[in-house]
């Protein structure tokens, strides 16, 4: 395997969700800590798409935010090209930020409604290349708009004049403006209709080939993930439960949660199909997760060991029952 480009190493994030201090003191209640992300490690090779899938509250977006440096981790590190993202060195942080960009879920919220499209796309250009002359900048904006399938005259319009799919194209153009190596895409198509989703997914793949981009794709939609990613990590209540190549994960899922998730996805190829596996339970509250392996209350293979001990990720799967003995 080639050299890892992005390394996520033992990444953890805790959120303090305690009630106010006075209330805690009066009710004699302890602090409450939400372990949103718990020792997650994986790596991404240059030019590949790595996808994180999980249900709501699994911590996948929190990982994405840490991977771009929008949140600092409680523990662990994110490295790009062997350099840590979290160093108290402003010049270094600035240089790293140019190389990492993000595309958000909701293109209605991620674009400033009072700015013209041109200014939105120009912002990264101004920040990372302040000495660029104005005519060159305008030319760069026009080029970017064309790259994402819009027209250069769209630079003068406001975001409200565009449809959801077009706005997501603007968000992609803004991300590309910084000339990044790595883009974190947090549910880039969840807010879009299927026919528009296909346009955006195809565009993302074309741009990846053209610029050699590395993607971290965060999604709850397994079909989208299957379509885009080469490697996939499945996350459940803040822990990575399985990491595998896409084809292997879909043809031969190993972790019981992955199997359940795959059986649960409604798919157009399952016409009138009766369910073979019964789905049990819901995702527990992450503030008070089950002991041991978080999945054990819903797991058909659970043993007493699973209730006491959290499994390590060995050989791509974190499960006592299915991991091969070392």
């Amino acid at each position: 395997m080639s050299d890892p480009f992005i390394e996520i190493n033992q990444l953890s994030k805790d959120f303090d969700v305690s009630p106010p201090a006075l209330e805690r003191w009066i009710e004699r209640s302890p602090r409450r800590i939400l372990h949103a992300v718990d020792k997650v490690s994986f790596h991404i090779t240059r030019g590949e798409t790595f996808a994180l899938v999980g249900e709501s509250g699994s911590g996948k977006s929190t990982i994405g935010r840490m991977a771009v440096g929008l949140l600092s981790p409680t523990n662990g590190d994110v490295k790009l090209d062997h350099q840590s993202l979290f160093r108290s060195d402003a010049a270094h942080t600035q240089a790293m930020r140019r190389r990492i960009q993000m595309i958000f879920q909701d293109p209605y919220a991620s674009l400033n409604p009072r700015w013209r499209t041109g200014s939105i796309i120009a912002e990264p250009l101004r920040v990372f290349n302040p000495r660029q002359p104005k005519p060159e900048q305008i030319e760069a904006i026009a080029r970017l708009l064309e790259k994402v399938g819009l027209s250069p005259v769209d630079a003068l319009k406001f975001p409200h004049e565009f449809s959801g799919g077009q706005r997501q194209r603007i968000a992609i153009a803004r991300a590309l403006a910084a000339n990044p190596d790595f883009i974190v895409c947090d549910e880039p198509t969840s807010a879009l209709d299927v026919s528009v989703q296909a346009q955006i997914l195809n565009l993302m793949r074309d741009l990846q080939e053209q610029f050699g981009l590395t993607y971290l794709l965060i999604s709850h939609n397994l079909a989208v993930v299957r379509h885009m990613a080469r490697r996939i990590g499945v996350i459940y209540l803040g822990r990575l439960v399985e990491v595998a190549d896409a084809s292997q994960l879909f043809n031969n899922p190993r972790h019981p949660y992955t199997r359940m998730l795959l059986a649960a996805v409604p798919d157009i190829q399952k016409i009138g199909a009766g369910r073979t596996t019964r789905m049990e339970g819901e995702v527990p509250n992450p503030i008070n997760p089950p002991s041991g392996c978080h999945f054990h209350p819903r797991c058909p293979l659970a043993s007493t060991r699973c209730t006491q001990e959290a499994p390590e990720l060995i050989d791509g799967v974190a499960c006592h029952a299915v991991a091969r003995p070392a």
Partner: peptide, 24 residues
Amino acid sequence: QGLMGAIPSLGADRTRLTQISGAM
């Protein structure tokens, strides 16, 4: 026809999706 081609499916591998240009 376009809609069915645009839906990514679990069964298919990484292929290009059919896309319907424009929006409703």
